[in-house]
């Protein structure tokens, strides 16, 4: 069983070959960190996974089925910027997805349905550490808080795959460490597979269960257009990290948290238990 399966994927823009014959499988619940030099096609690959663009050749399967040709609620996304809506408050941003999903005419809920959603949204907002900022607009938040909001907004849809394009690339180191902890926790708690593009190798090895490096094998300038990037390194982190489980190096989370996965979005979070 694989979450994502890429088979001989090519992506070309006109004459320029960006991705060349890419094949790899992603196991469910894994956290793939995608690294590679700037301009090698990491964002392009993410857009393909998102369904924002189509592959030139090859196939991508999501849970064994051909990837839909449009972005949809089964694949969430957080970009480095422009991930949240400037005209909605924190609460409005978090409520937006479920509202759009359940009310297809005006995209707004009223009455009891709205109260329930508001309740769940408050919990999600607290989950990502933004409690108290519900009524602020994104422009009133710091960069780190905006990215937390973007995560909360995406996670409300309970995506099967979460795609991140350098989500923490613009943050200060201290703030980045905090948000890494959050990211790890969310990945542990929620039943999702994560693919994260990053240019920070440390980040890749801190968060990932697997680090995939994209790169060009031919580097002569005159060959640049005709040869795309493919997987140059594919490293499983050892000792293996498992979502919901824990390794000897990772004792932050109690065993069996993956059973409580959807809990966070629908009810309160279980108390954190630190194992000794």
């Amino acid at each position: 069983m694989t979450a994502l399966m890429l088979k001989n994927v090519w992506k070309e823009y006109g004459d320029q070959i960006v991705l060349e014959n890419l094949s790899f499988d992603v196991a469910p619940r894994s956290f793939v960190a995608l690294v590679g030099p700037s301009g090698c096609g990491k964002s392009t690959l993410l857009r393909l996974l998102l369904g924002q663009e189509e592959v030139t050749r090859g196939t991508i399967l999501l849970d064994g089925v051909a990837l839909p040709q449009e972005p949809g609620p089964d694949r969430g996304v957080v970009y480095q910027k422009y991930s949240v809506f400037p005209h909605l408050t924190v609460l409005g941003n978090v409520m937006l997805g479920p509202e759009l999903q359940s009310e297809r005419i005006w995209g707004r809920l009223f009455g009891a349905a709205r109260r329930d959603l508001r309740e769940a949204s408050h919990q999600m907002i607290a989950e990502v550490g933004l409690a108290g900022s519900e009524d602020k607009y994104p422009a009133q938040l710091s960069g780190g808080m905006q990215q937390r909001l973007a995560l909360a907004q995406a996670l409300m849809m309970k995506p099967r795959v979460l795609l991140l394009d350098e989500p923490f690339g613009a943050l200060d180191p201290g703030i980045r460490t905090d948000i890494h902890h959050l990211m790890k926790r969310l990945w542990n708690e929620l039943p999702m597979t994560v693919v994260m593009v990053t240019h920070d190798l440390r980040e890749a090895f801190t968060l990932g269960t697997r680090v995939v490096a994209l790169g060009r094998t031919r580097t002569l300038p005159e060959e640049a257009e005709r040869y795309g990037a493919s997987v140059t390194k594919d490293i499983e982190i050892w000792p293996p990290r498992k979502a919901g489980g824990h390794t000897i190096f990772q004792s932050e989370f109690a065993m069996g948290w993956d059973d409580l996965t959807l809990h966070a979005a629908t009810a309160g979070r279980p108390e954190t238990k630190t194992e000794t």
Binding site: L50, P71, R75, V77, Y79, L96, Q101, A154, M157, P159
Partner: peptide
């Protein structure tokens, strides 16, 4: 695209 992933 983000809105599309929120099922709009």
């Amino acid at each position: 695209v983000k809105a599309e992933t929120l099922s709009a």
